[in-house]
Design a binder for these strands. Structure first.
Lengths: 220, 220
DNA sequence: CAGTAAATCTACTGGCGAGTAGGTACGCCC
DNA sequence: GGGCGTACCTACTCGCCAGTAGATTTACTG
């Protein structure tokens, strides 16, 4: 979980701007994730951050700007985590597997980030949805590309761009939803959750109900 | 789409309570779906409904109560639509298929309802999430039961309750996400979208990239 | 054609929260 | 240690919106 600066007591210690900004962002992500955009107040964010309201405005601008900045930061962290985790030279199923593992790993380590990204941002109409949609779009395109590539290499060029995109949207949604479910059942390890989704989208119910499951190729 | 009562002009015509309540609910769903819970104002709802604010409070209580009532009404309609569409005596894949078709059919016909249910309700904390979670839970349990039953009949009793539930959560999420994607690509017929998801979750990518697809059994 | 009760209105209050004006203290550098 | 800039604060304004008090109209009912 993120920061929980101790309660304010009088004046805050002087700190360089960069550090304060970081603290403020952490506090903002925390509060936004708990309360949502509208219900979160700048007063509360400033309190959690351990400074006073005008500092917020001096450093991060308006409430909307602050929120957008949060989304960008968290989204970037997440995309980076996944991009780092994926292994581009592997066959399609292994690529998918490593991507899923990286995704669930990130969510497990950064629950507040995930709340802000998924729940809050997508439910606000304004510029946030756009911000979020763009990063979501990147994920969808990535999966879609993987899918198209896979079917090409299998000499079955029937998969249209559009179909691939919608399937990718469904997959990303399944991941999001499963991540939410996971928040309510946090006792399971990330790998188990990831492998369930892997089995669902790679093998399908049709195979699963017959007892056919997918296994990660044993490495090393 | 739902109601768009013409603009207020002076006093509204006298109507029996039941009718007015219906109008108000329609207006509320419309406004909530467009703006979200917090951004929606009781003033705007009353304006869209073609009556004045005290009527809202007289008939539907506070803003929160109104919102909860909306969720209950729309969720009930949706569950009923799906329950009506599913065919319980069929094999698992056909049951899943008819459920998916009913779901996407409903979303297509009631976009505002869907917005309220999925986006708005899930993003507000408090009593709404509970309301929504319960109806979502019903859907998940249903799918989970179907899955467990399928694997039983296939003599493969390995599927645990918990695993089934998480898979069901993923499937429901995939449906939700694909429905959202569909809102941005409304030119596709519901059946096509439904069949894509059916293929994804029943066959899996593994089969799809090989060109194996699922077809509805030809009927009549 | 009253009489009445339900349906409807106008016009307010009270509070919360975004954003700001203007001042204070703290570290730093010569 | 005295200036000086910047980090920081207290204490407001102002608008919006949930919720209400109390007057007013209008359809039935006898």
């Amino acid at each position: 979980m993120h920061a929980d600066q101790p309660v304010r007591t009088g004046r805050a210690k002087r700190l360089p701007r960069a550090v304060r900004e970081r603290q403020i962002m952490d506090a903002a992500v925390d509060v936004f994730s708990r309360l949502g955009f509208h219900a979160a107040s700048m007063d509360e964010i400033s309190e959690v951050a351990g400074i006073s309201k005008p500092m917020l405005y001096a450093y991060l601008g308006s409430k909307e700007e602050l929120f957008a900045t949060c989304i960008r930061r968290e989204a970037t962290m997440m995309i980076e985590a996944i991009a780092t985790g994926v292994e581009p030279d592997q066959p399609p199923d292994v690529q998918l597997w490593s991507g899923l593992r990286a995704f669930f790993g990130f969510v497990g380590e950064n629950r507040a980030s995930w709340q802000v990204l998924h729940r809050q941002a997508s439910s606000q109409g304004g510029p946030f949805a756009a911000e979020l949609a763009e990063m979501r779009g990147r994920a969808v395109s990535l999966v879609a590309a993987l899918l198209v590539h896979s079917s090409r290499s299998g000499e079955v060029p029937s998969t249209s761009e559009r179909e691939a995109e919608s399937l990718a949207a469904a997959l990303v949604g399944a991941g999001e939803s499963l991540a939410d479910w996971w928040l309510d059942h946090p006792d399971e390890p990330a790998g188990v959750v990831a492998s369930r989704l892997m089995n669902l989208v790679w093998m399908g119910f049709g195979d699963l109900v017959q007892g056919n499951v997918w296994h990660a190729p044993s490495r090393r």
